[in-house]
Design a protein around this nucleic acid. Sequence first.
DNA 1: ACCGGAATTCCACTATGCTGGAGAAAATTT
DNA 2: AAATTTTCTCCAGCATAGTGGAATTCCGGT
Lengths: 191, 191
Amino acid sequence: MSFDPPLLGPRLQQIRKKRKLTLDDLAALSGVSRSMLSQIERGQTNPTFATLWNLTRALGLDLSALVEGHSGSARRAMEIVPRHFTPEIKSEDGRCLLRILSPAANSSRMEWYELEMAPGGALISDPHAPGATEHLTVLDGILEVRSGAEENSVGAGATARYAVDVPHAIHNRSDQPARALMIVAMADIPI
Amino acid sequence: MSFDPPLLGPRLQQIRKKRKLTLDDLAALSGVSRSMLSQIERGQTNPTFATLWNLTRALGLDLSALVEGHSGSARRAMEIVPRHFTPEIKSEDGRCLLRILSPAANSSRMEWYELEMAPGGALISDPHAPGATEHLTVLDGILEVRSGAEENSVGAGATARYAVDVPHAIHNRSDQPARALMIVAMADIPI
DNA sequence: ACCGGAATTCCACTATGCTGGAGAAAATTT
DNA sequence: AAATTTTCTCCAGCATAGTGGAATTCCGGT
């Protein structure tokens, strides 16, 4: 017994064009030849797993994203939350500032914050619920991020994804202030 | 650039044996030859998409189940995504840069980005799925945000929350570059 | 309309994915 | 223990995945 695989081409081409990438651009990003990309998009070949893997990694997609579509529901106008209305959490020593960016009436399982940390600052946390993860993108400066026993240095533009159902911490051990976006997800998002 | 694909074999064999299937059984179920199944399990070949599709359909699995698998194995504590591995979307005129911060294997209904927009830049979008909302926090500069017929100016530190299941746009009409964090939620988060 | 450059498709070649049958290894039965 | 059956791996051959370079098509400017 065998099953007809769905078309990958149209979706791949849609994504590529949406990102304003040429076949050459994507070839350079993914290590898959221009010819092969063209053949995939036109449904003229059946790519191997390694080729698909390279493609999805380069495009920052999940494998299934090339196979499926999306879905969602409804909403309204616009709310502006001025800076001084944005809730803030400050550490005792004043070196850490967490600004709560997610909405107060937040029914999702995610929260997001802007973190500002002066030199010598630290954010030390106990374990959250099982399965919880954190995604920290450093916008400026350098931060050390620890999850359990593992610690890494994260520079500007880089993103750390780590478990926070274990003790975790963020330190600014440099002599420059740092700024970061912190997303906390309650068990929905695998690393 | 290319990426090493993860091993499929161990997971596939694990599933097959757990279900008490021989290679012959699975070959009949999936239409993939015994030899090929054996080669896949031993990591001796790189299967095509059609072969993988047949396998996952026959086993009643999602594609990603063969990749992520190992649900019982030790989870990695932290992943670091360096800056240059962060997928980017650039506008034609080069004035807008979107960096995709959310993870590739994103099973949540949210995506998040960092947006950089030079003076004169614009991000004009068609409606997303019904119910989708966007949460834009301006880090630096000033941006004009439009949702449907409503438009507002958003300064540094402020957050705009608005519907994106209508035509929407972001403009930088100032003479300074702007930077912002953009969270896109598929219907989970009310404004 | 013409032109030049960019983007995509075509082409021919090599490497390998995939097969069915044979043989080897493993498991079960006598 | 030997014989038999089941399961898996090896083998050789065909089809095609994937490539780099050439040719064609597309697109914007004049």
